[in-house]
Design a protein around this nucleic acid. Structure first.
Lengths: 252, 252
DNA sequence: TCAAAAGTGTTCATTATACACCCATGA
DNA sequence: TCATGGGTGTATAATGAACACTTTTGA
C-alpha cells in the first residue's frame, strides 16, 4: 500500500516534469493574435445578403467589415464565433461552420493577426437586429464586389460565398435561411439566388419531392396577391438518419 | 509644390497615427502559439499510407505524431506547411491544401497551441525518405485506428482522410499519389483503397475514358508477371481549361 | 499450357432535361 | 375578368450499374 503510494507520487512527479518540458517548448514558440470573422448570410427579398458593419478601426473608417473579434484565452474558436454572433445579433441557434484560416502577414495594419473565417446562416425574418452600432446592416451579396472592405474581408467573403454555393448543393443548409415553413417558390428562389442560375420549376419540385425530406404542413401562404402555395418544413430528423451515398467520381 | 509636400507629410503623419492605433489594438489581443501539422498521404503496395514520426515530446515518446512545426514570425501558414514538408521529406513539388484549424484548449500538454491541418499527397516512389529521424516512416491508414497518437493527431488524421475521400471524387488529386505514368489498374486500386470500396473494372475504365483527361502514352507496364497494361498520363493542361459544371442538388 | 490480369459491349434502370397547359386566388 | 404564380406529366437523352468472355503475356 505504501509502495503503491510512492510509485504513484513518483509518477506524478515525473509527469509534472514532462508537462513542464512541454510548457517550456510551447513558450519558445512565436505567438500570434487570433481573431474569428463571421460571414453571416441571410436571405430576404429574393436576395442573398450578408451582414456587415463599418469597421471599428479608424484607419478603415469608410470601409465595411465582417463581424469579428479576437479569440479569448483558452476559448475554442467555434465558441468565439458563436460569441460574436450572439453579441452582434442576439442569435444563438444559428448554423455555423469553420471555412478557412487566413494568415497573410500584412492582412492587418496593426501587425500580424491570423483570422479564422466562419460561415453562418440565419433567417432574417426571425431576427430583428437589436444593436445597429457601426451601421450594422444587410448588404446584397451581388453589390459587394463594388464595395470597399476592410482588411482582406472581401477575399474572405468570396471564399465563404463559394463554400456556400458548393455546400448548399450537398447539404440542407438553405433551410437555415428560410422561415420554418416555406413554399417551394421561396426554396427555389433561394437556390437560384445563391447559385446565380435559373432552374426549371417543375424539375426543381420533382427533385425535392424525390428526396422526400419535405413535410407537407397542410398550411398555405398568406398575404400573397395570387394563388397561395403550400407550406413545407424540412424533415431534419429523417435527414439525420439517412446516410449519404458516395456521389461518384466526376471532375468534369 | 511646397503645399503639396506639406499635405503629403500631413497625410503620412496621420496615417502613422492610424497605424499606431491599429498596433495598439492588436497588442491588446491575447496571443497564441500556432503550429501547422501535415497529413502526408502516399500510396504504395495498393495501400493508402500516411507519414508519421515518433513524437518529439518526451511526454508522448511512445506515440506517433504528424509532421508539424510552429509557424515562424510573419510566415504564411501555407509556407510553413511547405517548409515542414521540405524539411522532413526533401520534397517541394507536392500537393498541399489547408483542411481545418484545431483549437481545443487542452490539445497540447504544454498549454494552448492552435494548429492548422494541411493535407498533402506525394508519390512514394519518387521520393526516398532522406532523414529517418524519429522513426519517420509510412503507416497504412487502415492500421492507424489502433495506434496511439500524440495530441489530437488521430482526430486530425481522420478529418484529413475524410477530406481526401470526398475531394478525390471531385478533383484529380489521385495522380499526385501515382507515378507520372500509370496503368488503369493502378488508378483503380488507388480509388478503391482510398474510398474503401470495390468498383467494376469496366465501368471504372468507361468513366475515366469518358472524362477524356487521360493521355495514352503508347507505353506499357514492365516487370509484371502477366499481360502488361497501357500507361497513361493525366492531362492537367486540359483539365485546367475545363470549367466544372455545377453537379446538382442532392443531399441523399 | 497455365495463371493472371488486360481489354472490351450490351442491356437495363435510373436520373436529368426540356417543355406547355389548366387552376386558384386576390385585385 | 385578369394578372400572377401554383400545380402537374410526359417524352427523350444521358448516365450509372450489372454482368462474361476473349486476349495477351510471362512463368
Amino acid at each position: 500500500m505504501k509502495q503503491e503510494a510512492t510509485a504513484q507520487s513518483e509518477f506524478r512527479l515525473k509527469n509534472e516534469g514532462l508537462i513542464n518540458d512541454a510548457k517550456k517548448l510551447v513558450e519558445s514558440y512565436p505567438r500570434v493574435p487570433i481573431t474569428v470573422d463571421c460571414v453571416i448570410f441571410g436571405f430576404d427579398e429574393n436576395e442573398l445578403k450578408v451582414l456587415l458593419i463599418r469597421s471599428d478601426l479608424e484607419i478603415f473608417k469608410d470601409k465595411w467589415s465582417l463581424l469579428g473579434d479576437f479569440a479569448a484565452d483558452n476559448e475554442l474558436l467555434d465558441d468565439a464565433a458563436y460569441r460574436v454572433l450572439k453579441e452582434r445579433t442576439g442569435m444563438d441557434d444559428v448554423y455555423l461552420a469553420q471555412v478557412k484560416t487566413f494568415s497573410r502577414p500584412n492582412r492587418h495594419p496593426g501587425g500580424r493577426v491570423l483570422t479564422v473565417a466562419y460561415c453562418s446562416l440565419l433567417n432574417i425574418e426571425h431576427h430583428q437586429l437589436s444593436k445597429m452600432d457601426n451601421e450594422l446592416h444587410w448588404h446584397a451579396v451581388k453589390t459587394i464586389q463594388e464595395m470597399d472592405m476592410a482588411f482582406d474581408h472581401k477575399e474572405i467573403m468570396n471564399e465563404c460565398y463559394c463554400w456556400l454555393q458548393k455546400r448548399i448543393q450537398e447539404h440542407p443548409l438553405g433551410f437555415n435561411l428560410l422561415p420554418e415553413k416555406f413554399s417551394l417558390r421561396e426554396l427555389q428562389n433561394l437556390y437560384e439566388a445563391i447559385l446565380d442560375i435559373k432552374m426549371d420549376r417543375r424539375n426543381f419540385r420533382k427533385k425535392f419531392f424525390a428526396m422526400d425530406f419535405l413535410i407537407d404542413t397542410g398550411e398555405f401562404e398568406d398575404d400573397v396577391p395570387h394563388r397561395p402555395g403550400k407550406l413545407y418544413q424540412f424533415d431534419f430528423q429523417k435527414y439525420k438518419h439517412t446516410k449519404k451515398k458516395w456521389s461518384g467520381i466526376d471532375f468534369g
